[in-house]
Design a protein around this nucleic acid. Structure first.
Lengths: 200, 200
DNA sequence: GTCTATAGTTCGATAGAC
DNA sequence: GTCTATCGAACTATAGAC
């Protein structure tokens, strides 16, 4: 995968940056090659010098680079975090909200599907490897330390990804005076301790 | 709003049904008037007899009807559920997963935005009124009964919507041998009691 | 590397016959 | 109510000058 991604030719990175920003914000169908070219300050046809294989392949390369970036970033912040579950989960959600907002569900169910059904499956695998696995691993480790109850760890990591996406979206609607990062701290606290009043 | 929605002329309902199914599955931009006409077994031009105000207005009417449907359904199942928090939350998620899968985040951030920025704001209001409020109310009631800790209730209802959307999506990827309804039961149990091992 | 020009499609929407 | 035919706009992509 991504033989081109190895050559980060500076100008190629600029193209991928502009394409990523637009694809992730508006979705595959809504973004035209003209939009991307405009963002780069060039004409639509000139973009085909940098993306000679067309829009579809450009989207694939954007996703490949993004998932690679996520996997590396997650592994890095997890390794750097204190070895407690709450600290690690906070480090993860901090990292995720700092990245450009990504709607994983829309990517799989709307964007990837209109490229091809098989690509949607491929994207699911990429998300699994790049984003789910690193989180699942620390949940499982906490279970083995006896800190966490018997719960399917993949369920928890899926929840965390879904809730982070939602927090970023929620923040963008300006309904609360709280940042998405702070909101996720509260979400983590809630997931760890539950909603139920226990003061007795 | 929705002066036309009052006349449920049977054939109009068929058009809205077909449009809703496609819009909710693929998103506004990816669905063409031809797709909708095909689903109804008619030619693309014939669809304009039923939707004379075009694609944009058709989407708005689909959303209006859907939100009205959600509000009525939520109020109904909440009223019918046993007066305990867990039973009411389960009734809510049961209802939500039984409906056609809806990606609220994509609707606001991708679909509505390309109609107009102001329509995106309007849709946020509709989601608030139709889906957030009914759930927020029962969280707040449980807090007043002393069952639930001091948490912003809107945060909990937002989480529940996000997680239900995610569970339906997750189920559609066929990764677990568990239905989204059962998955949401476990999610509710986790949200109530937390992940932390308390056996001591 | 970027441009103009344009081919080839597809889309939303309208006109008019039946 | 549904059809055929078509217009104008927007999109992907290519060709070729500079």
């Amino acid at each position: 995968m991504a033989t081109d991604t190895l050559e980060i030719s500076e100008s190629r990175a600029r193209v991928l940056d502009a394409a990523e920003k637009l694809f992730m914000e508006r979705g595959y169908a809504s973004v035209t090659m003209r939009h991307i070219a405009d963002a780069l300050g060039m004409k639509q046809a000139a973009l085909y010098y940098h993306a000679p294989n067309g829009k579809e392949q450009l989207y694939r390369e954007v996703v490949n680079r993004h998932m690679s970036h996520q996997r590396q970033g997650l592994e890095k912040v997890i390794a750097a975090a204190p070895p407690t579950l709450e600290a690690q989960l906070s480090a993860i959600t901090d990292w995720l909200v700092e990245q450009a907002p990504v709607d994983l569900m829309r990517m799989v169910r709307s964007d990837a599907v209109q490229i091809s059904e098989s690509y949607a499956q491929e994207l699911i695998q990429q998300v699994d490897y790049a984003m789910m696995q690193p989180i699942t691993n620390i949940i499982r480790a906490a279970q083995e330390r006896g800190e966490v109850r018997r719960i399917v760890p993949e369920m928890v990591s899926g929840m965390l990804l879904a809730l982070t996406n939602w927090a970023v979206y929620f923040d963008s609607t300006n309904r609360f005076s709280i940042t998405s990062k702070m909101m996720m701290r509260q979400v983590i606290e809630l997931m760890l301790n539950g909603m139920i009043e226990r003061s007795v």
